[in-house]
Amino acid sequence: MPSFNLGLSERASTFCVISFYMVTALVMVSVNKWALNTLPLPWTLLWIQMIIAVFLLKVTQYTGLLKMPEIVAKTAKALIPLIAINVLGLGVNTLCLVYVDTSFYQIARGLVLPFTVFFAYVLLRQPSSKLVLASCFTVFCGFYTGVTSEISVSHLGIFFGVISSITTSLHAIVIKKSLGVVNNSTLDLVYYNNVLSLLAVTPLIVLTGESAEISYRLSNDGFEAFHTFLFAGLITGIFGFLVNLASFLQISKTSPTTHMIAGAVRGVIQTLLGYWAFNEIITTGRLLGIFLILSGGALYTWAKDKEMTAKDSAEPAYIPMTQQDIDGEEEDEEIDEDNRKA
C-alpha cells in the first residue's frame, strides 16, 4: 500500500487532501450538471462514471502503480451497508441536480449537519452540547429560508436534496466503520466500493426505463445526439474516480466533521460557479439561506473546537493499570499512616 503523505508534514498533507477533494468535487458537479442538461439520464451517467473508475483502477494495477485486492465474498457481504448508502447517495445527488439549479444545490442539500449530529447520537451515542444544537437550528433556518423564498422551486428536487443530506451524513460514518473490514486500506475500500456499486447500478438502468430511452434516442436521433452526453460522461468518469478517492482519503485522513465542513465550503464556490457558468439567478433568499447554513457550520466548528480544547486541558484522573502500580500506592499509604502516628 503506497503512502499518500509524499514527505509532507501532517498539516500540509491534510491540507492537500482537503484541497484535492474540493477541486475534484467542484469539477464533478459542474460537468454533471452539463451532462444532465444535455440528457436527463442520471443512472446511465453514474454507470459510465463507475465503468471508467473501475477501468482506471485496473490500469493502475496492470502498470504496477497500485495493487488491487481480490474480491472476496465475505468482505463484499460485510460492505453491503457501504455499497447501499453509496449507490443511494450518488443516485439522489444526481437526481437532485436534474431538478434544481447548481446554485440552489447547496440549499437543497443543506441539512447535512443536523442529520450528522442526529445520527451521531442515534448510532454512535454521542450527545451534543447546546451550542451544537444551536448550530443545527441555524442550519435548518438557512434551509427553510432558502426553500421558502423560491417561487418556482422543484419540490421533487428538494426531496432528493433532503435524502441526499441523509445519505451524506451516513456515508462518512459508514466509511469509517467499513475501513476496518479491509484492514484500514483506503485503496481496497475504493476498489470494492466501485466494483460492487457498478454491479448494483447496472440493473437500475433497465428498471428506471433509461435503457429504453437510450434505444429510442439512438433510433430516432442517431448516435450524434449522444456525443455531448458521452463526452461529459467521460470527463465525469475520470473526475468521479478522483473525487471517490479524494472522499475516502479525506475521511480517513481527517474526520466526518471535516468532510462535512469541506463540503459546505465547496457548496459556496459551487453556487458562484452556477452563477458564472450556467447564468443562474442567485436570489436574496438563496444568499441568505446559504449564509445561515454556513454560519451554522461555522458555529458548529467553533463549538466542537471549544469542546476539544476543554477536553485536552482537563487533566485525566490517574488510574493504576498494573498490580505494581496498585502495590506502590498501598506502600505510599502505609508510609503516610506511619508518619501520622509518629
Score class of each variant (00 low, 15 high):
residue 146 G to R: 01
residue 11 R to K: 09
residue 126 Q to E: 15
residue 23 V to S: 06
residue 39 L to A: 11
residue 158 I to D: 03
residue 247 S to H: 08
residue 328 G to K: 09
residue 16 C to Y: 14
residue 104 F to M: 04
residue 98 V to W: 03
residue 214 I to A: 02
residue 265 V to W: 08
residue 44 T to P: 11
residue 154 S to D: 01
residue 273 L to W: 05
residue 270 Q to F: 04
residue 125 R to W: 14
residue 315 E to W: 08
residue 334 E to R: 15
residue 254 T to S: 04
residue 7 G to F: 01
residue 309 T to L: 14
residue 86 N to I: 00
residue 152 S to N: 15
residue 291 F to H: 10
residue 202 T to W: 06
residue 30 S to V: 13
residue 279 N to I: 06
residue 325 D to Q: 11
residue 304 K to H: 12
residue 183 N to S: 14
residue 95 L to S: 06
residue 96 C to R: 02
residue 81 P to Y: 01
residue 267 G to R: 00
residue 158 I to P: 06
residue 256 P to S: 00
residue 276 W to H: 10
residue 97 L to I: 02
residue 84 A to N: 00
residue 163 I to R: 01
residue 256 P to N: 00
residue 328 G to T: 06
residue 83 I to E: 00
residue 257 T to D: 10
residue 262 A to L: 01
residue 284 T to H: 13
residue 215 S to D: 14
residue 144 Y to N: 12
residue 154 S to L: 01
residue 226 F to R: 03
residue 103 S to V: 03
residue 306 K to Q: 14
residue 15 F to C: 11
residue 12 A to C: 06
residue 174 V to R: 00
residue 264 A to I: 09
residue 336 D to W: 10
residue 7 G to W: 01
residue 123 L to K: 09
residue 297 G to W: 07
residue 180 G to P: 07
residue 68 M to F: 07
residue 242 L to T: 05
residue 161 G to W: 02
residue 77 K to F: 12
residue 331 E to V: 12
residue 265 V to K: 09
residue 261 I to S: 02
residue 228 T to D: 15
residue 223 F to R: 05
residue 339 N to F: 14
residue 130 K to Q: 15
residue 210 E to F: 03
residue 211 S to L: 13
residue 337 E to F: 09
residue 222 G to C: 02
residue 286 R to N: 13
residue 73 A to I: 12
residue 74 K to C: 09
residue 187 L to A: 10
residue 196 L to H: 03
residue 210 E to N: 04
residue 251 I to V: 02
